[in-house]
Design a protein around this nucleic acid. Structure first.
Length: 253
DNA sequence: ATGTCACAGTCCCTGTGA
């Protein structure tokens, strides 16, 4: 089983890249973030033609998350059980595995109200995962907008006082991990940064100025069956790339 | 800090978000 997470930064703008990538890589499950579409615009039929069932929780101009699967897709859930108006979480059961696609709020700045929204959102995710069905494997993937440690940051001195690296954000990830999940890419690659996002500006990609903020959390039993996890850097190159690259996990399932 | 990208509306430029 091959699972990937990819913040596509507008599925409308990225469709040619996404379609080509699905045809080439044929992942079993893809967790998509920032579709920036409403459900009416989401390409359900084109994905079906590629062999993928899909679930989309769209909002229009901003956010929007999806799950694509060619190993079955049932039990779709949208958001948390609350009145959060932003489309940032969608869940489904694919091939018997509970999967979630997450687009964690950016936070903007430490003194911005959006930062508190981010911390609250992460706490709600941890609560959901604490209460999950332990009889199933689980994959929680997405754009977490948090670099778990300084190894995940090209130059920590640049980010002092900024979001994505603050201790409360990192502590929020540890609460998620404490529900029995592991950061798969880091587990299998203890020393290599594996950045997944590079700013469009300043030639950041070619200068190696990246962050690892796109994560695949899996339960420990599933991690025991993992054979590889890596970032598909080729997808950050070429014509009209997203600013994020796909993060892939492979399992002997 | 900012050499970019994508969106919608003010609609071929501008403000906002990332």
């Amino acid at each position: 089983m091959i699972v990937a997470t990819w913040n596509v930064n507008s599925l409308t703008a990225r469709w040619p890249r996404v379609e080509a990538w699905l045809g080439e890589k044929r992942p079993d499950v893809v967790l998509v973030q920032e579709t920036k579409q409403n459900d009416a615009k989401f390409p359900f039929q084109a994905l079906d033609a590629l062999g993928y069932e899909s679930a989309h929780y769209g909002q229009g101009q901003w956010n929007g998350v999806a799950i694509l699967s060619r190993i079955g897709l049932e039990g779709v859930t949208r958001g948390f059980d609350d009145d959060d108006p932003e489309a940032r979480l969608v869940g489904a059961i694919c091939g018997g595995v509970q999967v979630y696609s997450c687009y964690v709020p950016n936070g903007r700045a430490l003194d911005n109200p959006h930062y508190q929204y981010k911390l609250q959102w992460l706490a709600k995710l941890a609560d959901l995962l604490e209460r999950r069905d332990r009889a199933r494997h689980v994959v929680v993937g997405g754009d977490f907008n948090v670099a778990p440690s300084d190894l995940d940051v090209y130059d920590p001195s640049v980010f002092v006082g900024l979001t994505h690296v603050s201790e409360p954000e990192r502590a929020a990830l540890r609460v998620i991990e404490a529900t029995g999940l592991v950061d798969l890419t880091r587990l299998l690659n203890p020393d290599e940064p594996n950045y997944s996002w590079w700013d469009y500006r300043n030639g950041a990609f070619h200068r190696g100025w990246g962050l690892r903020i796109d994560l695949l959390y899996v339960d420990r039993a599933l991690a025991d069956q993992a054979t590889a996890s890596y970032v598909d850097r080729e997808s950050r190159k070429g014509e009209k790339p997203s600013d994020h690259a796909p993060v892939v996990g492979e399992f002997s399932l």
